[in-house]
Write a protein that binds this DNA or RNA. Structure first.
Lengths: 136, 136
DNA sequence: ATAGACCTTCCAACAATGGGAAGGTCAAGG
DNA sequence: CCTTGACCTTCCCATTGTTGGAAGGTCTAT
């Protein structure tokens, strides 16, 4: 299996496979005589693990930790749960920040006529002029 | 007012003021004989506008558009509302992505003992092994 | 005069990914 | 045998927004 096949089998682009290798997340595979990378089912399995962790929003660094815990058969699940729990908190913080932005913008957009007149509460807010209607 | 004072008055770091200037978001101010940037109340007002837009999650590019609409006294509020509405959609998409991650992770963390035993549904999921209990 | 708190420009780094150039390799078909 | 096209290799650059630092100039107060 060369890098292209490993890529389609894992869903990780060839570019990213090389990148993960270069930063030490992914062990360098053996090479053919002509210097092509050669992968087997095990490597694809690891790539899929990485892919899934990234899809769940873990950073590359967190993914590296999870990977080493995965490969350590005697690790305690507490450590993994801890990483996951902290990650959940970080995601929830991010979500409420975004939700705050949405709430403010929805309020502003609701107050904005969206017509051809130049009166625009959105711009007024951005410019620091407070709007009267705050309730809702 | 030099850059440091404009920075504390606006909440935008001196670094970022220079950066915004360099990318054309913010008009270059006049300089003293000794080449120091000089700002007035108007500039601080613009910086605050920028700061607020960035806080609301608008990209620098969107901020530039909003800024030009703000400075164009005859613009239609429809255009602003359109930008805001599209931005709201983008934020909501992002939120539901993150929420999906949280849901999955919470389910996995809930199934994970978090003890000293190596059985860990989180790692099993990352590794591609499906868990039996899907309900919740 | 000198210290220290400013300012200036320029360069690099972060995270994670994509794009592309320049060149080597392999398999199929003429 | 040779060409063509689809691979592969390494290397560098761009992105987005922000921060850090170095090397040097300026201003203010003692």
């Amino acid at each position: 299996m060369n890098i292209g096949q490993a890529s389609s089998a894992s869903g990780v682009s060839a570019k990213m496979i090389r990148y993960y290798e270069s930063i030490g997340l992914f062990r360098p595979p053996s090479r053919t005589d002509s210097n092509y990378r050669v992968y087997g089912a095990d490597e694809v399995h690891v790539l899929r693990f990485i892919k899934r962790a990234r899809t769940l929003g873990f950073s590359v660094e967190e993914t590296a930790t999870l990977l080493s815990l995965w490969e350590d058969k005697s690790r305690a699940s507490a450590e993994v749960k801890d990483i996951a729990t902290r990650h959940i908190s970080a995601l929830e913080t991010k979500i409420s920040e975004l939700q705050g932005m949405v709430n403010t913008l929805k309020h502003l957009a609701h107050c904005c006529g969206g017509d051809n007149r130049p009166d625009c509460p959105i711009l007024d807010d951005l410019a620091g002029e407070t709007i009267a209607t705050k309730g809702h």
